[in-house]
Amino acid sequence: MSRSKEFAALVPDGLKTGGDPVFAEPWQAEAFAMTVTLHQAGCFTWSEWAETLGAEIKHAGADDAGGARYYAFWLAALEKLVTAKGLASRGDIDDMAAAWRDAYLHTPHGKPVELPAA
């Protein structure tokens, strides 16, 4: 199976047009890429991932029949696995998200937004 088919197979049918997966916004592509990369690095198995994502989607029930919130569930599942595997804690993620928000608010428009060095 080619890499592109392998990735395409991970995206549910509802989000594809003409057989291609579609991302509505860049963060969705980034969350998708992180999941694929962590899996390839052996951080979790694909069945662990499918189970975690499945639980998030099931939890929402019929709320998301059209799949519009699919990547919100994807992100929630990714955070759950990342914390469960001890790669980062919930607090780490909260703090880093706050640091990024701060960096945006202190960067003039048009300049690249960068975090202060770790």
Binding site: W27, R101, P108, A118
Partner: peptide, 25 residues
């Protein structure tokens, strides 16, 4: 200033920064 992206996008950036700095990706 630059308008920060939505909370979901910020959390994705946060994850990316943490996982990169720690060498997982």
């Amino acid at each position: 200033h630059t308008d920060p992206p939505a909370e979901t996008a910020l959390r994705v950036k946060a994850l990316e920064t943490l996982l990169t700095r720690r060498g997982y990706v």
